[in-house]
Design a protein around this nucleic acid. Sequence first.
DNA 1: CCTATAATTTAGGCATGCCTAAATTAGTTT
DNA 2: AAACTAATTTAGGCATGCCTAAATTATAGG
Lengths: 223, 223
Amino acid sequence: MLTHAAEDYLKSIYKLQEKGGKVSTGILAEYLEVKPASATGMIKKLKTMKLVRYERYRGVTLTATGRAIALEIIRHHRLLELYLFKALGVPWDGVHEEAEKLEHVISEDVEARMDEFLGYPTADPHGAPIPDKNGVVVKTASIPMTDLQDGQSCVVAEVSDNDSALLRHLGSFNLYPGTAFRVIEVAPFEGPFTIDIAGQQVVIGREVAKHVFVDQVQDPDNV
Amino acid sequence: MLTHAAEDYLKSIYKLQEKGGKVSTGILAEYLEVKPASATGMIKKLKTMKLVRYERYRGVTLTATGRAIALEIIRHHRLLELYLFKALGVPWDGVHEEAEKLEHVISEDVEARMDEFLGYPTADPHGAPIPDKNGVVVKTASIPMTDLQDGQSCVVAEVSDNDSALLRHLGSFNLYPGTAFRVIEVAPFEGPFTIDIAGQQVVIGREVAKHVFVDQVQDPDNV
DNA sequence: CCTATAATTTAGGCATGCCTAAATTAGTTT
DNA sequence: AAACTAATTTAGGCATGCCTAAATTATAGG
Ligand SMILES: [Mn+2]
Ligand SMILES: [Mn+2]
Ligand SMILES: [Mn+2]
Ligand SMILES: [Mn+2]
């Protein structure tokens, strides 16, 4: 069995690999809130375990085995988030922190029981996809809200889950995955978004909008 | 916050203190499956934190603070066992191992939510009392089954929870907390117990009987 | 091509928590 | 009272995983 720290590194490498392409020591260290020297040390350990590919100064990549473990931990995390949310009523801005600790500790049996209880779900409370038991993830085609234009309609697909205050803020607007809204106006010069959610007019700052990803984008009906 | 290891030591000292009286380094080390030298090291650390009283060669005792932490962890453990059992259907011989890891990791919020879900329970699936949120435990007056005499009736109050195979064995006889039975015969020379559970006649070895504690003992009706 | 800068790695340290082996102490036996 | 035995403590080591500071390497600009 891997240590919690090693699992966190694999999970982080996976996520960074998805976003950008190459995962440098510095990026990884920053993401994990650790010094670069520490990241180098762990990367070397993971390499001897054949969980990553690594050449010094060249960045790090997951091997098939490393990727499988990363997905397993991510599955734990997201199932836990949804379970805590649905079964125990933990608010959506609290589940991430909780799952961050639990993900390393639950058994395969408990994982399977939560999965069954939840009806084999495919997304967590923030809209992130839950890898299935074989490590298969469905890639979503969502785009950042900041790419939207005046008049377009869409549905929230996913929001960043690691900032509790941001989640509370989004919650105050009812901006959950599944919520539909229409862009009324995008203010020029990197300005805020004015949107219509179920008749309510709401202003969303650009920094916040960066963390909201949307789906099913439709252009305005021509009048 | 304390480390998992420190929490386990406090919990173990508490339990050993309850059973016998004085907790020696050796007893503690054996209980934790660790070498005596390791126990000495941790005991010293706990002493500097004022969680235990300790004079070398004289054994260790919890301070009020140490006891409060021990009870908090035990509360986590037992609430988790019952929650896993009732909410997720984890079998009673599996909950202990699972709770052993989770107890160090759940938040006070999740603890409170499980407590509410379970209706503020007072005993875990093995009959052990769950300390309340203020660290108050109700001492049970149960006695070991090995103290029973021919003809006596009683109700199972508690069983040891740390041996999975033993629990499965007890389960096969329906010997759960709350189950009533009557002693038909105690074989002489440290022999086995023949008992009657709901009309079924069952033979229980002495080694097994040592791990079963009973309540509401009634002498045989005089004919 | 050579050098400056920024990223990365190496070297050395510290805290935890375990271990083995050797030294010490308590308690019992003669 | 001295000696033995068993428990306990001390000393020294090892693995993790983090840190800081110093050395190295890549890369881009002159
Ligand atoms: Mn799993
Ligand atoms: Mn999430
Ligand atoms: Mn608690
Ligand atoms: Mn129990």
